[in-house]
Amino acid sequence: MTELNLDEDKIKQIFKTAIVEVIQEQKEVFSDLLTEIIEDIALEKAIKEGESTEIVSREAIFKILGTKR
């Protein structure tokens, strides 16, 4: 088996090239992944903000939304 000797800069460049190729060749997949990441971050932020606010009943929420159960 052949041993590979790659320095850190060469490894970084290989990874950067691979990532750019994936982004270019799989734009839709990458876009979906990025969208999911942003949604997860927004949800986490909303949950944290909600932990420090006043508790509201389920009925009050549905009343605001104008839906009937």
Score class of each variant (00 low, 15 high):
G50R: 00
K63H: 09
E8K: 14
S52G: 04
E3W: 06
V29Q: 08
A60E: 15
K63W: 02
D9A: 13
E8W: 04
I38C: 02
I23V: 15
F62E: 11
K10N: 14
E49P: 03
F30V: 15
E54Y: 06
E51G: 04
L4S: 13
F30A: 13
G66R: 01
E36A: 08
V20A: 11
S57V: 01
I64L: 14
K45Q: 14
E54A: 15
I55V: 15
Q13S: 14
I14A: 02
I41M: 07
E54I: 12
E39M: 06
I19F: 06
K68N: 07
T67E: 12
Q26K: 15
N5W: 03
I23W: 02
L33W: 09
I55C: 01
I14Y: 00
T35E: 11
I19W: 02
I23N: 09
S52V: 14
S57I: 00
K10D: 13
G50W: 00
T53A: 06
K10S: 15
F15N: 08
L43A: 08
D9N: 09
L65C: 05
K48L: 12
K27R: 12
R69K: 12
S52L: 05
V20K: 15
K63M: 04
I11K: 01
L65K: 06
Q26W: 03
K27H: 05
V29E: 08
R58L: 15
E44I: 05
F15W: 09
D9M: 03
L34H: 14
I47K: 12
F62N: 10
I61Q: 07
L34C: 13
E39K: 14
S57P: 00
E28V: 13
K16A: 07
I11T: 03
V29W: 04
M1Q: 03
I19D: 05
E51H: 04
S31Q: 15
K12M: 08
M1I: 07
D9P: 02
E49I: 10
A18L: 13
L43P: 00
K27L: 05
Q26H: 14
G66F: 02
K12H: 10
I14T: 01
T53G: 05
T53D: 07
L34A: 15
